[in-house]
Design a protein around this nucleic acid. Structure first.
Lengths: 193, 193, 193, 193
DNA sequence: GATGAATGAGAGTTCATTCAT
DNA sequence: GATGAATGAACTCTCATTCAT
């Protein structure tokens, strides 16, 4: 479980990462933003890496939830992917800072522990998406002339780039609305026939 | 244009970024790797930002070359995209360090000059890809039930994610060969009919 | 207002300036002299400029005190000037390092913030001296055949040069005693009739 | 004697000192301003100190000339002082950079060779001024109720402060014209009766 | 005379972290 | 839980100077 302070630290850390990038996440900035002293943070997290790990944990949890909920529901694969997209967009719209985490692989380099965790998150998500696609192919919804892997790369790649463009734009368009449109296009691309 | 030393510095800088991420690109590391003193670097580049700008320049130049060559050739749009992909894969295969640059947006945050240049590179490339796709739609090669923008996001997004996966794997598969396969899938996805 | 450490830093900085000139005031020298690490200083002052500003502040405050005390007392203008001189000499005798500050205009060039503050100090002092002289002319103590501005330049200029000579001599004569003699001469020079 | 290049280096050095203070006189700035490489300067001066010494030499020579010319002329002491002032003002008006040198004592600290030379210049000038004043007292032109030393401090101090004010103002008033007025005041101050 | 390339020493500053209180 | 004070390591960058050419 997480104490209030821990949650606060995670939130502010996310905010800082989002606003100034990873380089902007320093213990000084963090403590200043929270309004406590630097050493105080060490009461709640052993060190900076633990904070980053906690952030990744939060991200992983919320992502896995989305993915798994879809996987175990009884709707069609297409609907699952649709929900997947939609819920992600929803999540980012509510907390744009999360976007930074999704693209943080490059940033956490150098810390093996972090690298591992990130790889884990990505792997898990990818494998779930692939399962859904496979299911869609089996049910005849999704085209079979393209391998699961390639479809997954396409779907996930589109999602990622789209979100990145949104971030780059300064969140100036409505990711939910525009996302729904992109979603329709992706559905057209991967549907059978 | 560039002196030998400048080129060497750029190369080594790229290598360092690739190996240890941006945080690994310090003037000390750079000078140590090259085998000269830190101040010596300042004879060849005014400051660190200039080195990063030079890297982005190299990347932009070589990318633009690829893109523009395609744009002005008389082949079909599909072939153009095919070449585009192929050449990029080729380039990355020969110099894996370049991959880091393609995903460097997050890393260069904080330096407005760099941000601007990156945005510029991305913008230019995106607009060229869109032109090719539009041409493909007009010639009937590429499906018209999906907007140019969405097709571009899909194509570019797939490429990016694929390259990232390759990097993440530690360059353990042949990006040229596997890339050609992904390429075929993408072609299937976007082709008319 | 100021913590003990801050005061210590200011004192040691002044001492360093006095001993080796501005070029001798480095963060390294400062920390070494105090007996703490370089970064430790940054806990007490944001940067070097803030230290210099604090020094100027100390100087300004103590000077302004002297000047204003005189201005509002009910003694004659001549006596005021006398006190002014005397107190300055007293101050320098107790803390010769302060002399360096009085002549620091040239040294702080390049830092606009510092330049401004110095100009401010000088301006304020000059205007107070002029007020006193004007008062002395109105009361008939001070000669009227010479303008206030010129008398101020003469009085202040003599004081400054005298102090500089004292500094240059390595503080080898008693500035209080010799200063009193110079003071008598200046009084003769500016008195009416 | 001095080569053309040496003279050029001295001139540019003076200009730099004047514009940005001593801290602005770096070998890099110097070479950039002249339009040659840094090592090239070392062809003409052994090191930076030699350049500063040369500057002081120039200053000393031109000052001594002024002083000595006056000393050996057959005019009155008052006229001599008048000429002294006037010629100095003339000199500064033509080359404001020289002002920086006159107040450079503080800046050259740390280099014993330079300190010594500066002390020498100041001493020589002071002793000449005192000679003139003494002569004026003997001839009855200058008041005798004040010691030569004190009169010298007053005269020289006024001159110095006035020039400094001119410099501080950004050379915004005519030092020759305003200087002449100050001169008249000083004459009034020191004249007998 | 001049240059390009290089250097050791040192500048100010920031970082994550620790310790006594 | 929290703080003020401190630190070692590392950062980018500048300095006067040298050396081979």
């Amino acid at each position: 479980m997480k104490t209030e302070r821990q949650q606060e630290i995670i939130d502010v850390a996310l905010k800082l990462i989002n606003e100034k990038g990873i380089q902007g996440l320093t213990m000084k900035n963090l403590s200043k933003e929270i309004g406590i002293s630097e050493p105080a943070i060490y009461r709640h997290f052993e060190n900076k890496i633990e904070i980053l790990l906690a952030i990744l944990d939060v991200f992983r949890e919320s992502t896995r939830e989305i993915f798994e909920k879809e996987l175990n529901s009884s709707i069609t694969a297409t609907e699952k992917i649709e929900h997947l997209f939609t819920r992600h967009f929803e999540r980012f719209a509510n907390n744009p800072s999360l976007v930074s985490v999704i693209f943080s692989e490059e940033l956490f380099r150098g810390e093996p522990v972090l690298m591992e965790k990130i790889a884990d998150v990505i792997d898990k998500n990818a494998s779930i998406l692939k399962q859904i696609i496979k299911q869609g192919q089996q049910s005849g919804e999704i085209r079979m002339d393209i391998s699961v892997d390639h479809l997954a790369v396409t779907v996930m790649g589109s999602l990622r780039l789209f979100v990145k463009i949104w971030q780059f734009s300064g969140y100036r368009f409505d990711i939910r609305e525009d996302g729904k449109r992109l979603l329709n296009s992706v559905k057209l691309l991967i549907q059978a026939n």
